[in-house]
Nucleic acid binder design. Structure first.
Lengths: 337, 337
DNA sequence: CTCCAAACTGTGAGCGCTCCCAACTTCGTA
DNA sequence: TACGAAGTTGGGAGCGCTCACAGTTTGGAG
């Protein structure tokens, strides 16, 4: 490698101070809120800043403040998921927005492979970020352990299965939501209620299944199928269910995206929705209003979820204790059930 | 805000050096390749590193090296696009991978609003990253001008309309790809070839339209409709075209995702694909192999595209001159035309 | 007129690292 | 035996910033 031609070497605080005819300290004060600075000093500094095009060197600042002004949004999921599942979209949008209000930048990293997770773990703990938001963690995620050991503040989205101890997390009440939906299906007279669960190494997988079982009973294993939250997996699971239990009259699908797939499978099999088979989803994201018929589903409070995650993370960065927040869910009745 | 309880204060190089019984300089040498370090010093340092759990403080390092070891992937697009369009996925995956080989982390930022763009512009130029990959830039993107002024190395994906001067970019040969497709449709006997373009403030919008016109002529304005690269917009545009020009016998759709929408619209209108209307796409991403019938399309060399972008960015960071790379495209014939 | 608080300003120390240079060791060779 | 080259090591300087503290000014109260 040849000698790199650095960025056009940027002006420093000293340059600004010299031009404004004040000291470094005064420039620093202006940069950090402008308290205890006289009117004319402030004006002079601001003029010098815009004249020199000065931008604070974040590395130097971080070195002394021990703060970077950014947090990581770590998605532990193969990349396609990110692009298919609107839930991540909702979450990401919410977090970015709330963080922006605090003037903190959100860095999105996708940990698709174990190797990625390692690199990201190193990167995150090298001081690049003040904290992390962990999304979509499967059972036994090594990232949680690593961050915990490093003492990097983080908040997990969803219950971190088997690692709830000393971990801050925000989750929807998956179990209760599942209960609500199953109960509702039952209340409309359905008797053979199947379920398409999420992966059983995720909280959304196990907790929603548990909620379903509280109402539907442990019952018939032929009424249970598992998907991976993709539309294709919902379609496949539904097809399986239909062949295992042709007499089912309702299905609770643990995500809207999978529910869309399930509806496709049902219609291809000649079943009418909801006349022959009622379909209930989970999430209430944009998919729910694009299916035909419109999807009856459980609303997860996405906005509150992201707001809580950010709030807890910032609190945690400021030294607060661990906390777990469980948010309530609502039944949204549309046409599919 | 109360006094923050910083991270458990991390060990520094001096701690490691003390434990290993060597000097800071030697530890630094070990960290940076281990050249000119005796076997036993190296072993001692490595032992001390793992015993203390030392991780280099990136801010301190960056402060002196003027390098951060990360680059930004800036997507100037409303967030939903990111999640719907598989092209971004392809690009992102490719860039992450190639950068990882250089041990550089990729930071994804989504600049959905003008406000976001400002915040990101500030953030990027504050020295957080060594360079930026700009994706999906619309006409007159202010980000390009800002980065250029700041002297931050960057590479644009796609031709930066009206800002090609002194800007490094990598693009597919949109014009030629469009030409190939239109020519192919013509060669199969189609005579009323419509087009659904991308937004006309993007290179993919204008250049593909230009390529189409070279073959199809400026012709009938009723044969031209514009979408925004979403599936829904493809469907809507196709519906419009059908009512404007019911006798069309082929349509060149400037993205696979829109083509999927167009096929839906055609089938709903009772037209058979390709018998009544031939459909050609553009991109050749995973959508192309999930439509029925399978999509005949133009392959964009995604892997090469990302590899070239990264190569140029790294070169640029190392002081290389500006460059423009245009990559050739291929016609992929499947069933829809 | 004096004195003290409040407002403002400058300065040195130091964040944790890399880079450079001087110094020391070792060894093969004249 | 002496000497230079090559390999190895320590330590000072300094990256650009914040923070604490001391110093200066101002103005109102006593």
């Amino acid at each position: 490698m040849t000698e790199p031609s650095r960025l056009r070497s940027r002006p420093t605080m000293d340059d600004v101070a010299a031009m404004a005819g004040v000291s470094r300290g005064t420039v620093s004060r202006v940069l950090n809120g402008g308290h205890n600075v006289s009117r004319q000093a402030l004006a002079a500094v601001e003029r010098a800043i815009s004249k020199t095009g000065y931008v604070v060197n974040q590395h130097a600042r971080s070195l002394v403040t021990q703060r970077s002004g950014s947090v990581a949004f770590i998605l532990s999921e193969p990349q396609d998921k990110l692009f298919e599942d609107p839930n991540f979209n909702n979450l990401l949008r919410g977090c970015t927005q709330v963080l922006a209000e605090h003037d903190i930048t959100l860095l999105l990293t996708v940990a698709a492979t174990a190797e990625d997770r390692q690199r990201i773990g190193r990167w995150v703990t090298a001081g690049h970020v003040d904290g992390a938001l962990l999304v979509s963690n499967h059972l036994g995620s090594p990232l949680i352990a690593e961050l915990k050991e490093r003492g990097l503040p983080f908040v997990v989205c969803g219950r971190p299965l088997g690692q709830e101890r000393d971990v801050t997390y925000v989750a929807s009440d998956d179990r209760d939501g599942a209960r609500q939906m199953t109960e509702y299906l039952r209340s409309t007279g359905r008797r053979r209620i199947a379920i398409i669960t999420g992966p059983l190494d995720t909280p959304g997988g196990v907790d929603r299944l548990a909620g379903y079982r509280e109402i539907a009973g442990a019952g018939d294993p032929y009424l249970v199928a598992t998907g991976d939250y993709t539309q294709a997996s919902g379609e496949a699971a539904m097809t399986r269910l239909l062949s295992q239990a042709p007499d089912l009259d309702a299905v609770f699908v643990c995500s809207d995206l999978m529910a869309a797939g399930a509806i496709t499978a049902l219609q291809r099999a000649g079943r009418r929705v909801p006349d022959d088979v009622a379909v209930g989803g989970f999430d209430d994201n944009r998919i729910a209003t694009t299916t035909t018929p419109l999807l009856t589903t459980i609303r997860q409070p996405w906005a509150r979820q992201s707001a809580e995650m950010v709030r807890l993370l910032l609190a945690h960065i400021d030294g607060a204790e661990h906390a777990a927040v469980i948010l309530p869910t609502d039944l949204v009745v549309r046409d599919s059930a």
